[in-house]
Design a protein around this nucleic acid. Structure first.
Lengths: 216, 216
DNA sequence: CGTTCCCTTGAGTCTCGTCAAGGACCGTGG
DNA sequence: CCACGGTCCTTGACGAGACTCAAGGGAACG
């Protein structure tokens, strides 16, 4: 059985799904092009892995997270198609990366993009992390979820609709809450008419401005 | 009245204390050298300011933070002598920077260091922000304060002693707590014999390993 | 059609925040 | 040196928001 990842990890238990090595369209830099497929919940890399690549999402969603020894998890970021991740270098990764749903990832190995390009990416990520700190450190559950919905809609949504790739557990671990609290606030927003839920993953934003106001 | 900052801000209300333009020793890069003095609580730059410099602390402590419209504050980082900050670019700063106590800041203007140097700094800061996210999102008040004390001791302490430059309010805003909770946990650690307090700013770490264990 | 997983909802608990009072520290001035 | 005032810190009582535990419902998959 072949691993579907270029650098297999022993702790990987997901079944093999395929090792695409396709060329998938335009790219800013002229590296060797490779797109790999990761099924839902597959690990892309682990904390502590040597890092020597930059990753760009072709389709799907990726979560980056840290763990405490007792299993508590903090998702630092979700990434959506077009976005880059994997530059937590210093020679090694400081986060785990997993596919939230079936995803295709373009892996850019050496030569990596020039430092100036990387600098812009990392700086943008730093700003995002700092904004996230404010949300988690100083906002209530209701405010956090409103902020989450607005952010997700601006990055992935169209026409008032967002398809949630992630479970309630993922959302909870992203916002520093429990799944019960996430669920309760979703229900609250629904009963107040700010959103509609289509199945468990379909989110319709009815009053975007109301959600924005809640964010404070 | 002259501002003591190179790029004065109208909202600054602190009194002028001095505009040192001294040369203060060796530096990795050969920029024009300038050290400016900032009294306690003086603003170094504001969110939204155009950014065109890199800052290095000569002595003192600096806080970087964001604000919500209702005044809630999240301190993203404290910086101590030797450390760099101010690279939240994109052309502008995304955080406020203030001196926690009287501080001297070396300001490196153009030509800024090469991208490779900046990339290392920003990456390190990103990793730190991600670790901070885990602390704030998933750890209890007791764990957060233990982690804070250990971190501060490793960066500033010697011989079991740390001089806290920041107030309880600063610590609370850094850890996403209230000053009362911070104070209670300090007292708890003292009564358990993990620390001793010498005045309100003198912290003696008696059982570093105990604090490390608490961090989980 | 049944099983499984995930989500929702409710009841009770607990941690941490709020409000309030008192105490310690520090600079100023007598 | 001591008295004074302001600021910051500590401590207590109470309350609220979020967590835990538990049960039931709904969607997805074989």
């Amino acid at each position: 059985m072949l691993a579907y990842r270029a650098q297999p990890h022993p702790e990987m238990t997901d079944q093999r799904v395929g090792g695409v090595t396709a060329d998938g369209g335009a790219l800013a830099y002229g590296q060797p092009r490779q797109v790999e497929f990761f099924p839902a919940n597959a690990q892309i890399y682990a904390q502590g892995d040597r890092s020597a690549a930059l990753y760009q999402i072709e389709y799907g969603v990726v979560r980056l997270f840290r763990l405490l020894s007792d299993g508590r998890r903090q998702i630092c970021a979700f990434h959506v198609p077009g976005e880059y991740f994997g530059f937590e270098a210093d020679g090694e990764h400081h986060l785990f990366a997993e596919a939230v749903c079936d995803s295709a990832i373009r892996i850019l190995r050496k030569p990596l993009p020039e430092d100036g390009f990387m600098l812009k990416l990392v700086t943008k990520e730093l700003v995002r992390a700092q904004e996230h700190l404010l949300v988690i450190g100083r906002q209530t559950a209701v405010e956090r979820i409103a902020a989450f919905m607005v952010d997700l809609y601006e990055r992935m949504g169209e026409d008032g609709h967002v398809e949630l790739a992630m479970s309630r557990t993922d959302i909870a671990d992203y916002l520093g809450l429990t799944i019960e609290t996430v669920s309760r606030v979703f229900s609250k927003f629904r009963s107040e008419g700010y959103i509609k839920l289509h199945g468990t993953r379909g989110l319709e934003i009815v009053h975007l401005e109301a959600l924005r106001d809640i964010c404070a």
